[in-house]
């Protein structure tokens, strides 16, 4: 139907397994150490009729050089809250309560938490890092904690608060690919080319 959003075609033509494979392939084969990749999917808001970017899919890899006993920046209370949320989400997905001392009770790192809360976010056209990239049809590449912190985009500052040093948003067909890393990764055209090839859904 013509009333459906452009993004619907991706869901039909490229199921979530395919999206996942592409996101995973993008950062598992990269020379850079990306912590996660997210596909923000463009759709039309039913009420306003405006374009909006919402969660399409994501792949969390984690920090490659993360020591086993990292002291998280999160306070004890915050850590307990994260574990409780994760436990509840786990129960919701599996349909059964997680057993005591399950893996779900392991420390929830800052970047894991940032990735999780990303699932609840959406961006109006032109707003936030993904919205800006889509609106201008130009990549946004923020490298360095200071640049993330100085950004007027809440998502960039939030990411910095969770230990990210680099956030990149690259427009693709029907959405935006976001890459994030706890390491400093300077802009390079290889990454942008790779995204364009991997997420050119028309080919």
């Amino acid at each position: 139907p013509t009333s459906s959003s452009a993004s619907t075609s991706i869901v039909n033509d490229f199921n979530q397994d395919t999206l996942q494979q592409r996101l995973q392939g993008l950062i598992d084969t990269a020379r850079e150490s990306w912590t996660y990749a997210i596909f923000w999917q463009s759709s039309i808001d039913d009420y306003s009729g405006h374009s909006v970017l919402g969660w399409g899919d994501g792949y969390y890899k984690g920090e490659v050089n993360k020591p086993k006993t990292t002291q998280s920046a999160a306070s004890l209370a915050e850590q307990q809250y994260r574990k409780r949320v994760l436990r509840e989400l786990n129960s919701m997905i599996s349909g059964t309560p997680a057993p005591e001392n399950d893996a779900v009770d392991e420390e929830v790192t800052d970047t894991e938490w940032f990735f999780l809360i990303s699932m609840t976010q959406s961006f109006a056209n032109g707003n936030g890092l993904p919205g800006q990239a889509a609106f201008n049809n130009q990549p946004v590449w923020l490298a360095g904690s200071d640049r993330l912190l100085a950004s007027h985009c809440e998502r960039a500052r939030q990411g910095q608060g969770f230990g990210l040093q680099t956030i990149v948003c690259i427009p693709s067909a029907d959405g935006v690919i976001e890459l994030g890393s706890t390491e400093l990764i300077l802009q390079n055209s290889d990454v942008m080319k790779k995204v364009r090839v991997s997420f050119d859904f028309n080919n």
């Binding site: 893996a103 779900v104 990735f115 999780l116």
Partner: peptide
């Protein structure tokens, strides 16, 4: 049902599964 909540649920399930694998192997 909208595709977005479905996508979130699938992503969440995958994230939790991979997390369990990471924790078990560490």
């Amino acid at each position: 049902q909208s595709a977005v909540p479905q996508a979130r649920k699938a992503s969440l399930a995958r994230f939790l599964e991979k997390r369990k694998e990471r924790v078990m192997s560490s």
